[in-house]
């Protein structure tokens, strides 16, 4: 699986590449943060767990985006869809996250798949909401300009609405990723591996020290992911809009 492949990569290569990538996205500060943060986790002998968590979070986030962005576009364009499904989004966000573990178990059993499923359900609402919001907030005049020059619905979407909504959509991506990360420990309860499991085990065994280490690991990952997605969002912001 992907995790084994990534674990097989020597940690120093992985860390080097990750630092380079974040440097390119967000500049020197974020690059250095990534470099030292990951080196620290390697040093704590949490490397395997870190990679597992990273894979879980990225897979869930990507799936959530693949589902969430098109649904968000649909909600933005159809008032009726928005009115019908908005309460469902509210419910998804207000239910305690543990609840999502229950339907996942009978279908997928214990393990990473169930964990992924629960994470996706929990983390998809922000990207849907923010995609819809971003598209709806494109100034009417700009949408009208596309219409007035004879742009079709598709042209309007891809040339006007999506580019202008991109910063908001990227904020949604960031939020979704953070929610996915917040599910890491909870997902460990139904058999997901990674840093979450380390925390969960140390709670059960009352090993405060090990739990603290894994906890710090999650925080470091969270900061790296948050900073680099925010840097991406800032890049998506059109010139001039502050």
């Amino acid at each position: 699986m992907l995790t084994t492949a990534l674990v097989a990569v020597p940690p120093w290569v992985f860390i080097g590449l990750a630092a380079l990538a974040t440097y390119r996205i967000g500049g020197r500060k974020i690059g250095l943060l990534t470099l030292f943060g990951l080196l620290f986790l390697w040093n704590l002998r949490l490397w395997q767990a870190t990679v597992e968590t990273l894979v879980l979070v990225s897979l869930s986030t990507i799936t959530a985006l693949v589902i969430g962005i098109p649904v968000g576009i649909w909600f933005a364009l159809s008032r009726r869809a928005w009115r019908t499904f908005s309460p469902i989004l509210d419910m998804m966000q207000t239910l305690p996250s543990f609840v999502y573990l229950i339907p996942a178990l009978p279908f997928f059993g214990l393990g990473a798949v169930s964990a992924c499923f629960a994470t996706i359900v929990f983390s998809v609402p922000p990207v849907i909401r923010l995609t819809a919001l971003g598209i709806r907030n494109v100034p009417t005049e700009l949408v009208e300009a596309s219409d007035a020059f004879g742009g079709s619905t598709t042209q309007k979407l891809f040339k006007v609405q999506l580019p202008l909504a991109l910063p908001t959509i990227m904020a949604g991506v960031n939020q979704t990723m953070m929610l996915a990360l917040s599910m890491v420990v909870i997902a460990a309860m139904i058999g997901a591996g990674g840093l979450g499991r380390a925390v969960w085990q140390s709670i059960q065994r009352l090993e405060a020290g090990a739990g603290f280490e894994a906890g710090i690991g999650i925080v470091i990952l969270a900061v790296i992911l948050d900073r680099s997605t925010q840097a991406l969002a800032a890049r998506a912001r059109p010139h001039g809009a502050a």
Binding site: P139, A145, D147, A148, F149, G150, K159, P163, A241
Partner: peptide, 30 residues
């Protein structure tokens, strides 16, 4: 609309993510 009407808006309605050239060519691009 493409053939017959050009429209100019009160608040300009230029796309902020495009250069002036690409904004001006917008109608033709469509």
């Amino acid at each position: 609309r493409q053939k017959t009407f050009g429209m100019v808006f009160q608040h300009f309605a230029l796309l902020p993510n495009r250069t002036i050239l690409s904004n001006v060519g917008f109608g033709l691009e469509l």
